[in-house]
Design a protein around this nucleic acid. Structure first.
Lengths: 151, 151
DNA sequence: CACTATTTTTGCTTTTAGCAAAGAAAATGT
DNA sequence: ACATTTTCTTTGCTAAAAGCAAAAATAGTG
């Protein structure tokens, strides 16, 4: 009866793998179309307007090393999309936040990236969209907590 | 009424994005644990024992450039995991196939990668696993055909 | 047989990423 | 109070991932 699990796991492994490749291609296209490096797009996508973040926070949520983040931020800073100031409470910390220019861009980016997905989703039923949401949501939770346990 | 689509698209965009980051981390860990580069693992994962592939076929299904594939295959060839012979019918084509060593490794790889997912999935219900399968399957189809249209 | 098209490879460059050490600041122990 | 340790970020270096443009090799065509 454990057979069922094995079967389902195989099928999900395969599908997730394919989805991953497609989504990476999709991200790459989108970033390029907006004159951004993929890493920059990924980073911008997670910073919210008004909030500020430490390098570590960003590194953790992007699953990258702090040193990698320093470089990504260097790039965004050079394009005046983010500000980088030393925290006054604890001067070891950097406080990364969006500039006005950054906020405008991120707003547009999020909007258009959601539109792109809207385009993909527009021809299927509301129920199917919910199925996608539920399925991916479940999977995301599982992978995420698996990572926490095995890191 | 289009509001609903926009909302769902946003949610799915967000989730897919997070899932992607997690799955990339997962792949990286798995490849490293098996002494492979991520690109090598990804490539091995799609070649089936007994079949042979052109460079282009592999490049297309991995969403990479042919030149990139040449390099990945170089690596696998150096480790004697794949054979590379000129096609006799059309000598421009390469025929890439798994060696015995390659077949053994790929068998183990697929087994263990599915086990890893089995581990993640083992504590949820059969129904939830089906929800994951269905959701990801739908999404994969959408992204995949979107890519075909927009490339 | 010259020209064109296709498939793969090579050389070069860019992007992505991490590690280890250094630098800077805070916390802690004596 | 100050030496030691810890924490956060950056820097220097290296490796891996990936593409582009040109070359090489072969096939197809007028």
């Amino acid at each position: 009866m454990d057979m069922k699990l094995k079967q389902q796991a195989s099928a999900i492994t395969e599908l997730t793998f394919d989805l991953l490749r497609c989504c990476e291609a999709k991200e790459k296209m989108f970033a390029k179309d907006h004159g951004l490096k993929v890493a920059e797009f990924r980073c911008l996508r997670i910073v919210e307007a008004g909030k500020s973040y430490s390098v570590q926070e960003l590194a953790t949520s992007m699953h990258l090393s702090p040193s990698r983040l320093t470089r990504i931020i260097d790039g965004l800073f050079a394009e005046k999309l983010v500000d980088r100031v030393q925290s006054i409470e604890d001067r070891r910390f950097a406080k990364i936040s969006l500039t006005n220019k950054g906020q405008t861009l991120v707003g547009k980016l999020k909007e258009e990236y959601a539109d792109l997905h809207g385009e993909m989703l527009k021809d299927i039923s509301v129920e199917d969209r919910d199925k996608i949401f539920n399925g991916i949501s479940l999977m995301q939770g599982l992978v995420s907590s698996w990572l926490v346990r095995n890191a």
